[in-house]
C-alpha cells in the first residue's frame, strides 16, 4: 500500500459517499445517470468475485464490501425509492449502456492475463469501469448545467483514477515484476475520458462560475 493508492481509495470512497449523501438527504437523483450507477454496480460485482475466496487484508475486504453495498444501494434508491425515483429523468438518461457491456466482455475474452473465469471477469470489470462514466457525461452534456454535488461526484471519480495512475508508476519503480499493462492502459483511457470534464470543471472553479458544459 502506498500513499497514492490510499488517497485514491479514499477519493473513490468519498465520491460514492457524496452521491449517497446527496440522494439520501435531498431525496433526489436529479442529474445522476442511473445507467452509470448500474454499470458501476456491475463493475464491483464482477471485480470482487474473490471477496470470499482470496483474503488479502481487512482493509481490502472492508472496502470491497463498502463499494458493493453503496453502489447497489444507489441503484436501488434511484430505481425503487418512492420519492427519489420521481426525480430520475429517464428521458434524458438514454445512453444505451448495454452496448458498452458486450464489447467490454468480448475484449476481456480476447485480451486478458489468464484465461480463467475469475481473471476474465476481473478484466471485464476493468474495461467496463473505463467507460462506465460515459452515460453520466452524456447526461451532463444534455442537461447543460449541473449541481455542484454531481460535479463533485464526477470530479472525485476522475481524481481517484488519476491517483491510481501515480500508484501504478510508484509500484512499477518499487516492486520488481509489477507489470499490469491491461490495468494501466484501461486506467489511462478512463482518466482521459474525464479530461475534458476536468478542464471545464477547473475553468468554472477558477472563474467562480456555475459549471457549464458545451453541448
Amino acid at each position: 500500500m502506498n500513499i497514492f493508492r490510499l488517497a485514491g481509495d479514499m477519493t473513490h470512497l468519498a465520491s460514492v459517499l457524496v452521491l449517497l449523501l446527496k440522494i439520501h438527504t435531498i431525496k433526489s437523483c436529479a442529474g445522476i445517470s442511473l445507467k452509470t450507477q448500474e454499470l458501476y454496480a456491475l463493475v464491483f460485482a464482477t471485480r470482487y468475485l474473490d471477496l470470499f475466496t482470496d483474503y488479502i487484508s481487512l482493509y481490502n475486504t472492508l472496502m470491497k464490501l463498502i463499494f458493493l453495498v453503496s453502489s447497489f444501494s444507489i441503484v436501488w434508491y434511484i430505481r425503487h425509492h418512492k420519492i427519489v425515483r420521481r426525480s430520475y429523468d429517464k428521458d434524458q438518461d438514454t445512453f444505451r449502456h448495454y452496448f458498452l457491456v458486450l464489447p467490454c466482455f468480448l475484449l476481456a475474452l480476447v485480451i486478458n492475463e489468464k484465461f480463467t473465469v475469475k481473471e476474465i471477469m476481473w478484466t471485464f470489470s476493468l474495461y467496463l469501469e473505463a467507460v462506465a462514466i460515459l452515460p453520466q457525461l452524456v447526461l451532463l452534456q444534455r442537461t447543460r448545467n449541473i449541481d455542484n454535488l454531481t460535479g463533485q461526484y464526477v470530479f472525485l471519480l476522475g481524481a481517484y483514477r488519476s491517483l491510481y495512475i501515480l500508484n501504478w508508476i510508484y509500484r512499477y519503480f518499487t516492486e520488481p515484476h509489477y507489470v499490469h499493462w491491461i490495468t494501466w492502459i484501461s486506467g489511462l483511457v478512463q482518466t482521459l475520458l474525464y479530461a475534458d470534464f476536468f478542464y471545464y470543471y477547473f475553468q468554472s472553479w477558477k472563474n467562480n462560475v456555475k459549471l457549464e458544459l458545451p453541448a
Binding site: R5, D9, H12, D50, D54, I56, N60, M63, K64, F67, E113, W122, Y164, N167, T183
Partner: peptide, 10 residues
C-alpha cells in the same frame, strides 16, 4: 515459478 499474482488493488 510465477507467483500467482492475485489482484491486491480495489
Amino acid at each position: 515459478t510465477t507467483q500467482e499474482q492475485t489482484h491486491d488493488e480495489l
